[in-house]
Design a binder for these strands. Structure first.
Lengths: 193, 193
DNA sequence: GTCGGTTATGTCAATGCCGACATAGACGCG
DNA sequence: CGCGTCTATGTCGGCATTGACATAACCGAC
């Protein structure tokens, strides 16, 4: 009895996006609109969602008792809602953050392109890869300035602070872009003439 | 007139999964079942899909004229279908492979966990991260044996061969796992005592 | 001989996700 | 005074994705 229920791994009352949003609300109260902005930067470096998805998920968080809101007069046809995480929401988020990771399901279109690149025109491939190289060089440059700002105020060291985890995700971005850039330069090099 | 049509970037008759499957069919004729197997390994390193999705997408590929099949007697209540890519399918795949990449929409649950890790119990975080470290060490070891097999037969050098692009994706896997492992070891180190 | 694993294709419901559409006040610039 | 941008929340339809259910032959081991 209850064979597939316990090993499911999906016993939470919201999906991963719910925790992404709850993680923002646990830091400070926000309107749905501000959540959508922060979803682009800085959460956009590792997750993303449009505002259509965000409004629905905020409703689910409130239904689960993990977030609450107070209404404020705002522009437009609807009132502004300022959401914040409840104590139960913080507890659920803390438990989720350290719970075992499900096996990742990668979706990397760049690698899929390369895997099929043997069929394509080498010059066209070189162009596509060069554009990607430039995009990622800009991304790396951005991460490096953010890291410099962090370190100007002293390297964060306490892993139970927001400042530290922010710093850790930036370091990951730098590492990830650096290895891809090396690989892209090598690949583009094999496509010379 | 046709304002949003040209800048959409989604003018193809199948989605990305369609090209992932077509890329397998362009190499050799396959049954849907075999496609699902290859979707786990080696495509699983950069894309994934279950058989429910695969059958539907194969039907779309046939409707688009990019794949065809011949029926063969097989086990079970349905006949076996052997799919292969048509000339039009190969051409579409070659064009797609080198076309400009859409901006990626990352979904990295590990980074989302770390971003919210300041709230969690450090010992529990260390446990979760150590499990992930071990999973990725095993993954790196696997990539290294695959690379060794490639190089034993001579390092692939011609980017218009299947052997080369297979090799290129393995090198990417090695680089990607190595940088994550370094980062994970640093992170776990900050969570000591 | 039957038990379990592999081969093989399919449906279905629920959920997730995305782009487009809808509305409208506030504020600054020219 | 109007135009564009930002703030702000919401709906809707369609497609993508997942897990569960359904069916059944073939094959090797015990």
């Amino acid at each position: 009895m209850a064979r597939s229920d316990e090993r499911a791994g999906r016993m939470w009352r919201v999906n991963t996006l719910g925790f992404a949003i709850l993680g923002l609300l646990a830091r400070r109260p926000l309107s749905g609109y501000r959540v959508a902005q922060l979803m682009r930067e800085p959460i956009g470096f590792f997750w993303n969602a449009g505002h259509a998805q965000i409004h629905g998920t905020l409703r689910k968080l409130v239904e689960a008792g993990w977030a609450e809101y107070r209404t404020e007069p705002g522009p437009g046809p609807h009132d502004k809602k300022l959401y914040s995480a409840t104590a139960a929401g913080r507890a659920a988020l803390a438990e989720w953050a350290a719970s075992p990771l499900p096996t990742p399901q990668p979706h990397d279109e760049l690698l899929l392109r390369v895997y099929n690149g043997w069929l394509a025109d080498p010059a066209a491939m070189r162009e596509m890869l060069t554009a990607e190289l430039e995009r990622r060089e800009a991304s790396l440059a951005h991460y490096l300035t953010v890291r410099a700002e962090f370190e100007a105020d002293g390297t964060p060291e306490d892993p139970t602070t927001q400042r530290f985890v922010d710093y850790a995700t930036v370091l990951n971005g730098i590492g990830s872009e650096r290895y891809v850039l090396d690989w892209l330069r090598w690949l583009i090099g094999t496509l010379r003439d």
